[in-house]
Design a protein around this nucleic acid. Structure first.
Lengths: 249, 249
DNA sequence: GCCGGCTCTTGATGCAGCTCAACGGCGATT
DNA sequence: AATCGCCGTTGAGCTGCATCAAGAGCCGGC
């Protein structure tokens, strides 16, 4: 099994519904998918939509966790900062993903847009009201949460056990799969994260990420199109490297 | 903030109740804490208790996820195996922690006892029935899950950004705090995990873990008592090293 | 008591990835 | 079109940790 497959499972679990989040107007993949019409009306009445530019913060680490967010367009990164200033990217989020849901009073990490996009937010306490009215919604959050936990464990495995090239290969494949799951057509994917972002996600320096990507390019495994375009030419090779069955290890 | 503090938060969240899980007979910290008497009766009727020896498996990676477990005595480790045989310890669990709760059909990781101990297990579908009867129980699982997710993110941060000694220091402190939270008295803590277990948890080799522990001992920060006893002599030094505010980084 | 196996420790060596540095490409601004 | 700042690439050297190896302490079995 691909070690990042649980990420796929998480997203597949959210991608089936074709409901429309009334207020947001977007195809709702995250919050609204398996809900009935009455619930959607309630949520739409309680939520607000906001447009954001690339690099805008959605919320900051330490902010009071007043809202829960759904990313309706664009791509974002989740970051945590250590006391000494070292920073880590904890994850990336795509259109349809839910952000910032926590029972704590403060956000343990920050979220920033990597591209332009829009978010849809609902007050935490209104969501609690909806939980009481629609137990299915709470169940849905529990499932999402457990799946995200499994994805975190995959990432822990990758950080603890994978070489630099293995990590980058796994990342590129999971990025492509995430976009395919969102009905992306064509062989060229978006890669809006910088080398530094990827490095901070994978526990590597930007130079090491750059070298791995160059190596894949030299081997004919990938092709870069402009500064944002990524094409997986030999996906099997990348999956082989990124799946953790290194021959003779 | 200590980067492993969310682990503490997770456990504090479960440590407040003094209820007794009727069938298990143990102080229930995990499943049963904030529940009313009727719910406890229901759960006790549906759960079974088992005694296990050190090294016994509670469940295996890939097993059908038929049960949800509470560790009532002892210490366990959670492990994942990669296709090529590389293994990683993704976490440790203590008395009172809940194990193996997942909406998936299979366990994504295995769990093995590190010490003798007992577990209390309940069938997954009976738990679902209880969820329907007691929505508060489901809410409790959601909170636990979000907190565990935060703990995973701390671990991701440690694996991606911490040096070997920083990781070992953070691990020793969090282990001591976990035992203090469980009303452990006295300055000497249990360290039932081997150097290899710790190394597989922290993404290090057993030799590197051993060297870090020896270095702490030489600096007078810790003392070892027999093969299982650990005393933190200078906890502040360990916290300083393990909290991620390395001076000048 | 003696032996075999396991864990821990410590030393020597090698290498993957970090650090430091230089440069080229591209978009934005004016 | 010129300039600036950011991002990416590549090279050279260094270092922290892995790897390999040897030996010591401890425990259970006989």
């Amino acid at each position: 099994m691909h070690p990042l497959d649980t990420t796929r499972a998480l997203m597949e679990g959210t991608g089936s519904g074709a409901d429309i989040c009334l207020r947001c107007g977007s195809r709702s993949i995250g919050l609204c998918a398996p809900l009935d019409a009455g619930m959607l009306d309630d949520m739409a009445g309680d939520s607000e939509r906001h447009a954001l530019d690339a690099r805008d913060a959605i919320f900051h680490q330490g902010d009071t966790a007043r809202f829960v967010y759904t990313l309706t367009e664009g791509m974002a990164r989740l970051t945590r900062v250590l006391p000494d200033g070292r920073q880590a990217v904890i994850g990336f989020r795509f259109a349809g993903d839910t952000l910032g849901f926590t029972p704590a009073t403060e956000h343990a990490f920050g979220a920033e847009m990597l591209t332009r996009g829009t978010i849809c937010r609902i007050e935490r306490r209104r969501l609690d009201t909806l939980f009481r009215r629609y137990p299915l919604l709470e169940r849905r959050f529990l499932d999402l949460c457990v799946r995200e936990l499994a994805a975190s464990q995959d990432h822990i495995l990758a950080l603890g056990r994978f070489s630099a090239e293995e990590r980058v290969a796994a990342f590129l494949v999971s990025l492509a799969e995430a976009q395919e799951r969102r009905n992306h057509a064509g062989p060229v994917f978006d890669l809006p994260a910088t080398r530094a972002d990827i490095g901070e996600f994978l526990g590597l320096t930007l130079e090491t990420v750059s070298r791995a990507i160059s190596a894949f390019r030299r081997r004919g495994w990938i092709r870069l199109h402009g500064h944002n375009g990524l094409e997986l030419v030999d996906r099997a090779a990348l999956i082989g490297l990124g799946s953790g069955d290194r021959p003779g290890a």
